[in-house]
Write a protein that binds this DNA or RNA. Structure first.
Lengths: 115, 115
DNA sequence: TTGACATGCAAGTATTTACCTGCATATACT
DNA sequence: AGTATATGCAGGTAAATACTTGCATGTCAA
């Protein structure tokens, strides 16, 4: 269940692809456990639009929801972010300098610029 | 010029949002400097579609292109990945355990599950 | 110079996405 | 009970995205 397969990774990347959704995560990072209405305050779109963004974040497991009476409290879950970094970003980072070095060699070497 | 502003960060996130584009980056990670045709081999779509994906990766500066005669060589540039991590992902990761702890407290405390 | 190969450019379609409006439901407050 | 508050659900529109087909251009090799 906690398996981080390709589908769930894709959901995380897709969730992060929208600046509005990233702002929502930022908001929750600033203050965790906010209600829907509170989150709407900074979003310059209708409540329904914000709801839909939050649903994507929930589907990606980046946000966890807890009900308190009629209020929906939103909590940040940074685990998928870490998973994405660990399983995907890190491997590119590791060979960082090597690859740049290769590229530099190529550029300075046999390769020609297009006119 | 090398400024990593919000717009360029957005381009990177959007570029990473597609699994096909992520596969292209994986391919380049496995073997750097591949031609367009070589990259097409693993992509199960037309060459033009692959070209368009690569253009988005270029726009996000995740891929750098060098021409060698009639061949277009594609090189991975992991710098934007690192930038995204450093400027965006990391701050969520830092408070990782704290936030989970908060959440756990909330769940076990005053909050009630919805029926 | 001719033919094969590597790529570009442009326009068109289909799907997905972001967002809206309108109405329904449940909880809290008095 | 009655009103305000917090949210859900459903349907519709506009724009963005993924992908296609068709044709043009430039490079290599015989």
């Amino acid at each position: 269940m906690t398996t981080t397969n390709d589908l769930s990774i894709d959901r995380v990347f897709k969730a992060l692809a929208d600046s509005g959704r990233r702002r929502l995560l930022d908001q929750l990072h600033a203050e965790n456990g906010q209600t829907l209405t509170a989150l709407c305050a900074c979003m310059n779109m209708t409540r329904q639009a914000v709801t839909q963004h939050l649903q994507l974040l929930e589907a990606a497991n980046l946000v966890v929801v807890v009900w308190r009476g009629r209020e929906k409290l939103h909590y940040l879950n940074p685990v998928p972010l870490h998973a994405v970094y660990a399983r995907w970003v890190q491997k590119f980072e590791r060979s960082h300098l090597d690859l740049l070095h290769d590229l530099k060699n190529q550029l300075e070497g046999s390769a020609h610029e297009k006119a």
